[in-house]
Structure formats: structure tokens, C-alpha cells
Design a protein around this nucleic acid. Structure first.
Lengths: 210, 210
DNA sequence: TAGGCAGCATACCGATGAGTATCTAGGATT
DNA sequence: AATCCTAGATACTCATCGGTATGCTGCCTA
């Protein structure tokens, strides 16, 4: 638990807030935003509704706080999983594959993500913020692709920005289909998708065509 | 209005049922499943809640009926838009592009689709049926791709089944991103995606490989 | 150590909405 | 024309839940 800090009142408060966020993420994903009750969220965290209203303005505020927190976390998780140098397909394939499975294809995350999408689609006020997060993720993906192109020394046959949105949509889309039936995302399919991407994009210099 | 049929009681009943389904699709997409009230759905259709319970077992049954109806409709819509022979990219590109926009990227449909996904993900009983629908769509897409390969006379570099799920996920994924910000799916991006697919899959016989 | 206050608990209110029970009217049947 | 019957309307119940107002308790300050 890190270097045992003396639990000041501020830290206690931060901890309850964190517990509430954690519980909220669970319950929202499991039951959906509307069906989730603040009582149950609080109880799951080991508190009561008072703790919620002491840390958040209301249900919507809590939901949006979960959104922020999860995006930050996801960002750093993927970043951490991918920032090591990987050159041959045999080298990066298993790493990327498990990163996708663990970070993007976690069912709880996918359901939360869809709840976010639907919520923000219906609440124009918060939609802009969500769009900003997505844009940041896309930008990061785009840069990653550009770097790979530079490393490979080949001219991009497609604009990195397009490839970024293409791959993100593909993985997110597969995550959604996975909710419908996990067998849609078998290992074989995932490897096919990754191979498809790498060959098309052209990272792998010695790729065998066909 | 077809050949003026004399409005038997059965036809009246079928019409109210249809109106209810239509209204339900609208309201469910706009407000979400949980937040939609049967009173408002009935009122939107020009009836009262009594009509709903006379035609459906309850809210869930209505929702699932909407699901069935929309999948049937979507299936035939896409099929109708694509079953004409198209060979050159300049020929099929605009047709496909507008078909995608109108059939798959209709915001109402996307939101309904996501509601379906989340609902069935939480209701294992109905998930199997939903998966069946999705599987049928995938199968249809797979056959379409296989036919194109046969017509082109080239051996598929990727399994048609994989390509089917890849393209479906990509378009659905883009539809989701479109909810977050329509500018993610500009004409330029859509054309890039279609070009990306066609070149990668290899339909276009004279495709320039990288 | 006495007071104050912040964090959370408890108790309550009001609105909402799914489901049900009952009623009614208008077409079908004889 | 008298009757029936069903689609749909109306009226009600009851549980749920977001929000608020208030109460309590333990840690900080003086």
C-alpha cells in the first residue's frame, strides 16, 4: 500500500471517494445507469447515500466522475502495455493480443463505455468532454502508427489518422460483438484481425503478401 | 397504401401493433429502455397503455418485439441496396457509402442497437436470440464477400468469415463513434475506410499493392 | 478540554412508472 | 335487432429511487 501515509482527513475523504467511484463503475456496468440506485452503489462501497452526496453533486456527477477516472486509467494502462519496443510480429503479437483482451475487451469496461456513449449522446452538455477523451485516445493511436511508419521507413499508404480511427473502431466494435457472443472474438479471429492490420498498414517490412 | 384492404379487426389490431412498435423504437432510442415509459410510448402511437398490454406481455416483450422487427427490416434494406451488380470502384463506392450512412449510421438505429446489446448482455435469456440475428447478418456479409472473391477469381488472402466480422465491426464501431462526434465519420474518412477495405480485401482486380 | 466542524448516517418526501383490475364501445355473430 | 366479445381506455396500487433535511460522531483548533 505504498509508503504508509498517515491518513489525514483529506486522505480519508479521497479514499471514500475512490471506493465510491470503484463501486459505481461496477454497478453502472452491471445494471446500467438508470437502473443503478445510489443506495446500492453506496452499500457496495461500504457506505450510505450520504457519502455519495458528500462527495458528488448527484447521480449524474458521480457518473461523469467515473467516466473521467476510467479514461485516465485506460489511457495509462494501454500506454504502459505498448511503450516497449517490439519489432517482429512474433514478438508483439502475443503482447498486443493480451493487451487488447485485458484492457479493451473487458466486458465491464465495454458495458461502461456503451453507457457513456448513450448517456453523452443524450446529454449534449457532457458529450463534448467525452468526445475530447476519445479524440485524445485517437491522437495517441495516430502518433503510435506514425512512429511505426517512420521506424519502418516506408511511406504510409493510408493516412495515420484514418488508420487510427479504423483500428480503434474495429477493436471497440469487436468488444461490442463480444458482449453478444464471446465466440465472435476467438483467438483465431483476433490473430486474423491483428495480422490483417499489420499487413495492410505495412508495419512488418518482410510481410509475406497473401 | 397497397390494394385497399377492407380493415378487418385483425388488420386493425395489426396496425395498432405496428404503430406501437414504431413509437417504441423512437422512444427507446431517444430515452433509453429504462427511462422510456409505456405511457409515453402509447401516447406517441396515439393510444394508451391499455393498447400496449393488449398487444404485448409487458415492457420487455415490447422491447424484444422491436428488436425482431428492426432486424428484419434492416436485413432487407441492406440486401435491397446491395444486390445489384457493381464492378468498378467508382460505381459501387457512392452507392455503398450512402447505404452505410442511411442504413447503418442512422443515429436512431445505432442507439437502438446499443440498447439491444446492453439489454441482452444483461438478460441471458434473450441474448441467444440476438446473437442469432447478428450471426445471420455476418453470414450474409460473408457470402457477399465470398461471391466477390469468386467473381474476381483471386484466392482470398483472408478468410471471408474473418473479413465479414472485421468489416461489420468497423462500420458498427464507426457508427458508435459517430454518436460521440459526427465529424469522426466525415466523407473523407468513410471513403478512406471503404478504399482501405476494398484494396485490402482485394476485390478490385487492379489493386496496387502498397 | 471545550467548542466547532466536516463527513457520513438516518429519516423522510415526492414523483414516477410498471403492472392490474375494471369498464366501455363498436364490430361480429346469430 | 339482441347479444357477445374483444381491443383498447381509465383508474388505481405499490414499489422504487433521487434528492433533501437533519442528526450524530470523531478529529482538528484554540
Amino acid at each position: 500500500m505504498a509508503a504508509f501515509e498517515p491518513l489525514t482527513p483529506e486522505r480519508r475523504r479521497a479514499m471514500t471517494r475512490q471506493h465510491l467511484l470503484e463501486a459505481a463503475a461496477m454497478v453502472f456496468a452491471r445494471d446500467g445507469f438508470q437502473r443503478s440506485s445510489l443506495d446500492e452503489i453506496a452499500a457496495t462501497a461500504g457506505f450510505t447515500k450520504g457519502a455519495v452526496y458528500s462527495n458528488f453533486k448527484g447521480k449524474d456527477d458521480l457518473f461523469l466522475a467515473v467516466l473521467e477516472e476510467r479514461f485516465e486509467r485506460g489511457q495509462s494502462a494501454i500506454r504502459g502495455a505498448l511503450d516497449t519496443e517490439m519489432h517482429t510480429e512474433a514478438e508483439w503479437m502475443p503482447r498486443i493480443a493480451s493487451a487488447i483482451r485485458e484492457s479493451m475487451w473487458d466486458d465491464n469496461w465495454t458495458m461502461l463505455f456503451l453507457e457513456f456513449v448513450l448517456y453523452t449522446a443524450r446529454n449534449p452538455d457532457s458529450r463534448a468532454k467525452f468526445a475530447t477523451h476519445v479524440r485524445r485516445t485517437l491522437k495517441w493511436s495516430e502518433e503510435l502508427i506514425s512512429q511505426e511508419y517512420e521506424a519502418a521507413g516506408t511511406p504510409p499508404p493510408f493516412a495515420p489518422a484514418d488508420l487510427a480511427i479504423i483500428s480503434m473502431c474495429m477493436f471497440d466494435g469487436l468488444g461490442v460483438y463480444r458482449l453478444v457472443d464471446p465466440s465472435f472474438t476467438s483467438d483465431r479471429t483476433l490473430r486474423a484481425v491483428l495480422h490483417f492490420l499489420s499487413e495492410t498498414i505495412g508495419f512488418d517490412e518482410g510481410a509475406t503478401s497473401s
